[in-house]
Structures are given as structure tokens and as C-alpha cells.
Amino acid sequence: MSVGKSIRLFLADGTPGGLLTAEIMNWTGHVAAAPRSDLAALLKRPEASRTGIYILLGDDPESMGGSVAYIGEGDDVSKRLYHHSRNEDQGGKDFWDRAIVLTSKDSNLTKAHARYLESRLISLAQEANRSRLTNGTTPPLLPLPESDISDMEYFVAQAKIVLPVLGVNIFRTTATPIQPSEPTEVAASASPSISPIFEMFVKRYGVRAMAQEVDGEFTVKKGSMARLSFTENSSNYEFLHDELLKSGQLVQDGEGSAIFNQDIVFRSPSAAAAIVAGRAANGRVEWRIPGTGVSFGSWQSQDVESNFGGNES
């Protein structure tokens, strides 16, 4: 059973697109985020001058909907952010348009802690593969005392919870074990945040794919198949299909088929179904639980129907 978390968000200037802070109850960590246009306000905040980690985020011009990120650390994070705010010809970085600062409310993070966290977050971002990192190298983990490692791993775990709430998804992994239970048992017992496995089969082309919804994201599993070409022109999904092939996330696996080279997250089951089928598709209908025929849409509505279906007048 999952345990709830209370996250406190504060909009410093009263607008959703401006500087904000985030905290989790009983966690000593503190997160501040701001667009580049509000960097001056971020640098004035006391937490920005503490030892900590920072993340720079921007759009990736080399991929559709992708992002570029840089992860760093500093004894005084504000000094590092000021340096990165300069133009590239002055040693700064131009790609980013948002900065995230992670520090400690009790100021107990040391330089060694920050370097450990930097290394762990870079490794997690590389594992998740959701953003193109501009870090040249991955610094090795420092040999901290066992108790400090435990504290830092807890810090990382809490950061991975709060950052997606702020729209920072570069550490979210799609790797979840496929549950071995029978399909009917999986449908009944799966965690609310992890769905049963769904299958899509395009019989005409012998294409079969597996997918799962994890924490509200629809993920097609590595090894799934897709059509190599798209049958409809001028479609946004066709452009996405081409991007996946160019990036190597989809790899040709025969004359008319391709294979997913890694788990890939889609914005909707229909987007995933379109890439698999090579045409527009209703993912809520075409993704089904193997052995039961239950569609994704029907599975998603089960709790609503069981709790509220009889309340219509």
C-alpha cells in the first residue's frame, strides 16, 4: 500500500510561472525553482547561498519535445548560477531557461554531501534517459561514512518525489518489473500507481507490443514491436515516429517492422498505439490486458464504475 506525502508549495510572487519553493513534511531538504527571467530573485534567497545541488533545464532543439539538462553542485549555489547565467562566450550556458536549487533547511549539507548527491543525480538522469545531459563527465561517488550515505540516499529519494510535482521528470525511471501473476489477478491486485501489463497486436503486420501505466505515465516496454513506416502523412505522430527512429529509440527489425530499443514514455495510450500501428489509433480501445480482452479504457474506469456507477439518477 502506498503512503501519502504532504508537499508544501509556495508561489513566492503569487504566479504559477514564477519563483516557487517546495518542501516535504519531515524532510530537511528544500527546493527552489525559477525561470531564468526570475534568476535575480532566486539568487537573493538565503537558501541559494547554501551548499547544495542545482539543475539547469532547457528545450532540446535536436529532438521534438526533448529537454537538455545540466546538474552541478557548489558551496554557494548562487555563485555557480551567476556564472552559468553569463553568455557562452563569457563561460556561461545559453541553453537553459529554468533553474532548480536543492539545499537543506538545517544547512547541514557539506561539500562532500553535495558532491555525492551530484554524482547520484547524474547517474539517475542517465539511467532514466529522459533528457540530454550536457555534463562532460560523471563524478565518482565519494567514500562517505555509512550513516551519511544513508542520509544522502534518503535525500535523493525525497527529491525524486518532489521534483516531478514541479514538472522536473528527468530522474523518473520507467523500469518496473512485469508482474508474473495471471492477467485477472494482476488486474485486481496491481498498485493504483502501476497498471497491469497491456498488449497491442496488429495482426496484419505481425506487430506485438507491451505497455504499462506507471505513476500516470503510459510506457511502452523495451522489446515491443512497431511498424517501420507510418501510413498517414502530415501527422504529428508521424513526426514523432521519425524522431524515435532517428534517435535510435526505435530500431529496424525486419523489412516492415521496428523494435523499441528501450522503455519509452508517451503522453497518452493513443500516442503509443499510433506509433505501434503506424496510423492514428484509439489507445483506450486497442491496448488490452492479455487473456481477458479488457481494454485500457475499461480497466481505467473500473474504480469509478464500482464506486459511482450506481449513483446516476
Rank of each mutant, 00 (worst) to 15 (best):
L121E: 02
M225A: 15
V77Y: 04
I122D: 00
S295W: 06
E243L: 05
A125W: 01
Y237V: 12
L141I: 01
V168G: 05
D106R: 10
G293H: 05
A258R: 07
M1F: 11
I149P: 10
S107G: 09
I149L: 12
T219S: 10
S181T: 09
S107F: 08
T15C: 14
A209T: 08
Q212N: 01
E312T: 11
M64K: 11
L20D: 05
S78I: 01
L56R: 08
A12S: 12
M64V: 13
E199V: 04
I53L: 14
F171P: 07
G18F: 06
A211F: 04
G58N: 04
I161S: 03
A280Q: 09
A22P: 10
M200D: 02
A187W: 03
V165S: 13
E118F: 07
A99I: 00
D253A: 15
A175N: 10
I264F: 10
G29D: 02
D60G: 00
D151E: 12
E182K: 05
V251T: 09
P145R: 08
S313R: 11
K93Y: 10
M25W: 08
R284S: 15
G206C: 07
R267G: 15
I178T: 10
Q212E: 04
G248N: 13
I7F: 15
L163H: 06
R227A: 09
D97C: 14
S123F: 01
P16D: 12
G297T: 13
L20M: 14
A273G: 11
S306W: 01
E217G: 11
F95Y: 04
L244G: 05
I264H: 08
G297C: 13
D263W: 02
S313E: 15
S306E: 14
I170T: 04
G254F: 09
T21L: 04
E153T: 05
N108L: 03
W96V: 00
R130E: 03
H84W: 06
L240G: 06
E217Q: 12
N135V: 09
Q249K: 09
E88M: 00
F308E: 14
Q262D: 03
N233K: 13
Q262G: 01
Y116N: 15
S37F: 02
A226C: 13
R279G: 07
I178E: 11
S224P: 15
Y205L: 13
G65L: 11
G223V: 13
D13F: 11
A32E: 07
S181C: 09
L42H: 00
N282V: 06
N233F: 03
V202C: 00
H84G: 07
L56C: 10
F266K: 09
A277G: 08
R279V: 09
G283H: 01
T134K: 13
P290A: 14
G254R: 12
L20Q: 12
D89W: 01
R8M: 06
K203I: 07
L43E: 04
A114R: 09
G291P: 08
T21V: 05
A280G: 14
A41R: 13
V207A: 02
